[in-house]
Every structure is written in structure tokens, then in C-alpha cells.
Design a protein around this nucleic acid. Structure first.
Lengths: 179, 179
DNA sequence: TGGTACATGTAACATGTTACATGATTAG
DNA sequence: CTAATCATGTAACATGTTACATGTACCA
């Protein structure tokens, strides 16, 4: 009985659990750190999926530790479900960039306001780029070379942020505002 | 009474309706063409929001044409709601790239399969890039220069796809497969 | 001893997805 | 005349968001 196919949120949690037992909180921060740049989870979802996956027998809860920490670990069934899921065709990318909507409807926005939003968002992307460079440099310095796959996803972030900044800097003065 | 704030899906529909009355179908294809690269709508949502916005008085339906076509147009109230919405801080970008999840969990995937998926997705991005170049070239040739804002969003697509291809081509043989 | 970060969970609601039902018009 | 495309709409369900409720442990 193959039951319902996994959703990708649950699946990513199972993927992370291959590193060892984790609590909901752990999962949330691991997700943020490891896949947060191209995949998002909310706390609410995490606990909901944990409950559902426990019911479905894909994970089992350990005994509660200190602050009510409740570590979950994979069952064989969970491992199997993940293996099946991860080998399937990855779906289409899903991108939503509100700032581009704003620019697309730019003629309806107060120009100074638009320039302000643009500058704000540019700054956030610059920060993120700096962050990627930092992660990569720390890894290098500490001699802890991230594995092949991790490097690939990190590189994606790096290249993406570089491209976005390039785009920001190519915007005409009418949109960026004159500085 | 400011009623419920617009959601961005509905708001984008109102934005498109500034070009003139459109049916649900028209809206769907206009959205696909104009903002589809960084914003998505489904047919179901479009009709749902149309109904909701008509009830809310933001749009009014004209008389049914040929194939039951039912054109909607903005009311003053709709125009106002849009103006308010579009001037607000654009939210955070939201990106979900299943292929990156697959690569992040790459150690659990059959390598040939992964290489196959990677090649497939690379091809799609190459197509999209070609498409952007085409749109831009056609515009140039026809002398119909797209406006400032449209150019900015188109250029985003262009730069994004270029970056993604660069990333694909930087992937190690273990991930891309040897060719 | 008080504030911050940790930690779990629920409820209500908004949004997005998929599948289905129904039919009209047009092009070949 | 028939297949493709146009066109609207509903229903059921899955997923994502926001807000709230309730504490615990740690560190300065």
C-alpha cells in the first residue's frame, strides 16, 4: 500500500532526518541553513507534518528531553518513502518576486517610493551575497570542505545573487532614482 | 471601510485590468505573457478572484459575448484598491526550486537519473533564454520599444536565465554526468 | 532575576492545485 | 465533421500563513 505520495515539504524533512534524529525545532533551523535559499518551511508546517508523518509511520518520536524536546527519527518506511520521492522528476521551479510585480506595475507607483523599495531590496541581496561568500570562505579556512552537492547549491545562491545585483545596477535612473 | 486588504493575486489581476476590460481567459493569458516569469496564476484562482472581486465591488462584469465570454472592468473602487496595494512595500521574494532540493539530497539519488534531470532542466532554461532574446529582438525589429518597466522585468528574466545556465555549466561531472 | 532564545503545539484562515463538468467556435 | 482551442465554472483537497497559547532553560 503506497498510501498518499509524499509532499515535498514532508519529503525535505525526511531528507534532513537522514543526518540523525531531530526535533521540530532542529528541523526548522537545519532547513533554514541548508535549503532555505531555495526552499522554505514554516514552523507551523513542520509540526503539522511531523504529526502526520508519525501517524503514517514514516518517523517515530523518541522520549521527550529537556525543554520538552521531542526528537524524531526515520523508520525504514520513512527511508523508503524518501528514496522513492527523491528519485522522481523534480517539479517546475516556482518563483514569485513581488518587487518585479511592483516594477511591472511601476507606472502606478510613486517614483520616489519605488526607488526606495528598489534600494531596500538591493541592499538585502547584497547582504545575502556577502553571506554566501562568507560561508564559502569559512568553509575553506576551516578546511571543512562542503560536499559536492552542498557546493552546487551554494554556488547556485552565489551566482543567483550576483546576477540579481547586476540587474539592480542595470536599472535606469527612472526606476532606481538618481543618486 | 477599507475592508480586507487585497491579496497579491487579485491585485495583479486589477493591475492587468488597467489595460482595459478582460475576461478571465484574457487575464490568464495576459498574466502568463506579462508577469508569468516571476508571478503565477492558475485558471481556478482567476475565476475565484473574479467572483470575489465582483462581489466586493472592485470590478463589474459586462454582458456575455460569443463563447460566454464575460468581460470585466475596473470600478473606481477597484482602481483605488489597486493604487493602495501597489504602493505598499513589496514582500519578500519567494523561490522554490525542486531541482535544487534534488541536488541537495543528491547523495540519495541514482546518479544517472540525477544527470538526466539536470540535463532536462538545463534544456528548459536554455529555451527560456532563447525566448527572452526573441521577445527583445522582435520588439527591436518591430520598432515597438517596450516601456521602461517592461524592459526592466524582461531584463531580469534574461539575466536570471543567463546566470542559471552559467550555474548548470559549472556543475561537476559527478552531477551533470559525463558527456 | 529578568530577558532572550528555545521549544511545542493549535486554530483559523488564505492561497494554490488538481480534477472534473460543460459547452461553443474555428480551422482544416 | 471532427479535433483543437477557446471559455467558464465548481468541488475537493493540499499547502502555506498568521496569530495565539504556553511554557522552559540559559546567560548576563
Amino acid at each position: 500500500m503506497p498510501s498518499k505520495p509524499l509532499n515535498s515539504t514532508a519529503a525535505s524533512m525526511l531528507g534532513l532526518l537522514h543526518q540523525g534524529p531531530m526535533t521540530g525545532w532542529d528541523l526548522l533551523s537545519a532547513a533554514e541553513r541548508l535549503i532555505g535559499n531555495f526552499w522554505s518551511l514554516t514552523q507551523s508546517q513542520v509540526y503539522r507534518e511531523l504529526a502526520a508523518m508519525e501517524t503514517a509511520g514514516l518517523i517515530t518520536a523518541g522520549t521527550r528531553g529537556p525543554r520538552d524536546r521531542r526528537p524524531y527519527e526515520l523508520t525504514d518506511s520513512g527511508r523508503g518513502a524518501f528514496a522513492e520521492w527523491v528519485n522522481r522528476e523534480p517539479g517546475k521551479e516556482h518563483i514569485r518576486i513581488p518587487l518585479l510585480l511592483s516594477i511591472g506595475f511601476g507606472q502606478h507607483i510613486n517614483p520616489e517610493l519605488l526607488a526606495h523599495y528598489v534600494a531596500e531590496h538591493r541592499a538585502r541581496h547584497a547582504e545575502r551575497l556577502a553571506n554566501y561568500m562568507n560561508v564559502l570562505q569559512n568553509a575553506e579556512e576551516s578546511g571543512l570542505v562542503p560536499d559536492l552537492y552542498r557546493r552546487a547549491t551554494l554556488r547556485f545562491g552565489l551566482i543567483y545573487e550576483q546576477a540579481v545585483l547586476e540587474w539592480f545596477d542595470s536599472l535606469p535612473a527612472e526606476i532606481r532614482g538618481e543618486s
